[in-house]
Design a protein around this nucleic acid. Structure first.
Lengths: 301, 301
DNA sequence: CACGGTGGTGCAAATTTCGCACCACCCCAT
DNA sequence: ATGGGGTGGTGCGAAATTTGCACCACCGTG
């Protein structure tokens, strides 16, 4: 918005050299030189004394530089204010989450949020837990919801909750109604479980590989709808957190039995944001709503 | 120096219309419109709400307008400061004066002034008294020196002094040594007097036309050198103020006898400047020196 | 004296800005 | 319902401005 001269002038004063400033600014020195000469002509005063080593500010140049720097600084502040005002009214939130949350609690959270900010658009991407963390750390997503096994220096956990994996079965299944199950209890059944698309760093694969009693997986799917159909068709036992099937369990269509296991039984799910990004009012509200939604869910029985 | 956008934006906000602002700014409405649209895109926010009647500032627009107006105002002040700093070092003074002063006191005043401001150039224009006043009022001259019969709303009298007309004669002239003369005393002599080049509003012509005893003029000239030669050649009596012949009178080459007459005997000469123009340090000093030079002159005997 | 730095300029290419002609919409009077 | 008079906004070509290349002139240093 402001004349490019302000930036050029500032840099030349800083570098004490037209050619050095041009290098920093990544433009030709003639462009910088001509801008300064033009303003000197407009003002009828020299901004710099030319020396063989470069340029030195004159008294007039010092006065003008002070003005230019003040203008640039005030514009930066104005810009931040405008950015805040703009984002308060409209804008976009990028949410990346494990898919169970996308189904389980996010729809209600978005409904509540949109009553306050109807013009803010939201995108929801489902991804594997470690991809969620990476996206948040890099600033590619505003909010992430995923398991929180390890901390990440660039990720801030805003809230978290225990969300153990468990067995999801039809209500008439022999395991239905158990207060909990162990891996051994699942040995005689085929499993339906989520898949890590890239097959690496999967907490479930890692956990599964440490089991003394191997479990057999019949269906791999991160499509929870498909998983539900398979469970209801008695193709196996679902091995998921309760989050993605919360409504079905509430309605009695499915039963959830928490898994007692060192890793899978001690999973926590958290709401996270980038450690370096500011949290504006809209983002803050969305996180609060998601945290509250998840906080109200009974996920361990 | 600053982006033209600032000016356009300010005016659109003032006029509440792109087309009206364009008229005021004397540019096409598309130019103004595109500047605003471009900045709105840069900022990612609307500056105006568009209505069928024109445009209304948005909250963001109000914030930015405040910034723009502050920048423009601060630049104006910076510019004035720079102008003062520049003019302190170099510059130009336009002086317009009646020619007697150009010869009498101005040379010494300029000599003294140039010791302080060697780089300020000076132009001296001689003119009839009313032309001096007009030039100063219009700002065409920085300093004027002339008779001050009437006041002018656009002219400020910085200092003035009594400078009556009188008879200038050779030292051996019969009138030499008289303390004063009346019009009647001059009746038997031919006059050498200044001429109003345009022949209108001349104080001398007006004064002469009211005399009961008509005086005969032999030579009309505003060239004081020629007047002096005519006086010394006994072609007549000079009818001038003492200013232009001060050195000659001091040296005894000519005698000055003040005229006792209602108009010509009560003339005052003043140093004047435009009432609306600022008086910078250089201009102030020049006025002071001229006033001091003229103040030290004994003009009434 | 040569080299490596600086600021500064002529000129043509590249880019931006501007204005004309026009479109679409709105409001108001008839 | 229609026409007139206003508004903001756009496509396009001309005009103006900006940019960078190639080069000049000067200065300080080894």
């Amino acid at each position: 918005m402001h004349s490019i001269f302000l930036k050029y002038f500032d840099e030349v004063a800083r570098q004490r050299s037209i050619r050095k400033a041009a290098l920093v600014l990544n433009v030709s020195s003639t462009s910088v030189n001509r801008k300064i000469l033009k303003i000197e002509e407009e003002l009828g005063a020299s901004l710099f004394d030319r020396t063989p080593e470069g340029v030195e500010l004159t008294a007039v140049g010092g006065i003008l530089l002070e003005h230019c720097r003040r203008v640039l600084h005030e514009f930066d502040r104005t810009r931040v204010l405008i950015d805040d005002m703009r984002d308060l009214r409209t804008g976009h939130l990028n949410i990346i989450t494990v898919d169970s949350v996308a189904i389980g609690s996010l729809p209600r959270a978005i409904n509540e949020f949109s009553k306050v900010y109807p013009d803010i658009s939201i995108s929801v991407t489902t991804a594997q837990p470690e991809d969620v963390v990476d996206a948040v750390a890099m600033g590619d997503a505003d909010i992430g919801i995923a398991f929180t096994f390890t901390s990440h220096p660039d990720v801030r956990i805003l809230s978290e909750k225990s969300a153990p994996f468990g067995a999801l079965v039809r209500p008439d299944h022999p395991l239905s109604g158990w207060p909990s199950v162990t891996v051994e209890d699942l040995a005689g059944y085929r499993l339906i479980r989520t898949i890590d698309a890239r097959g690496r760093n999967s907490i479930i694969d890692q956990a599964m590989s440490t089991l003394v009693t191997p479990l057999s997986t019949y269906v791999f799917t991160n499509t929870l709808f498909l998983a539900k159909e398979m469970i209801l068709s008695n193709h196996g036992i679902g091995l998921y957190t309760k989050i993605g099937f919360y409504d079905e369990v509430q309605r009695g269509e499915l039963s959830f039995i928490p898994l007692i296991q060192a890793t899978l039984g001690n999973v926590r799910v958290g709401v996270m944001a980038s450690a370096s990004a500011a949290i504006g009012p809209a983002k803050r509200l969305m996180c609060d709503i998601i945290s509250r939604e998840m906080g109200s869910m009974r996920l361990d029985s």
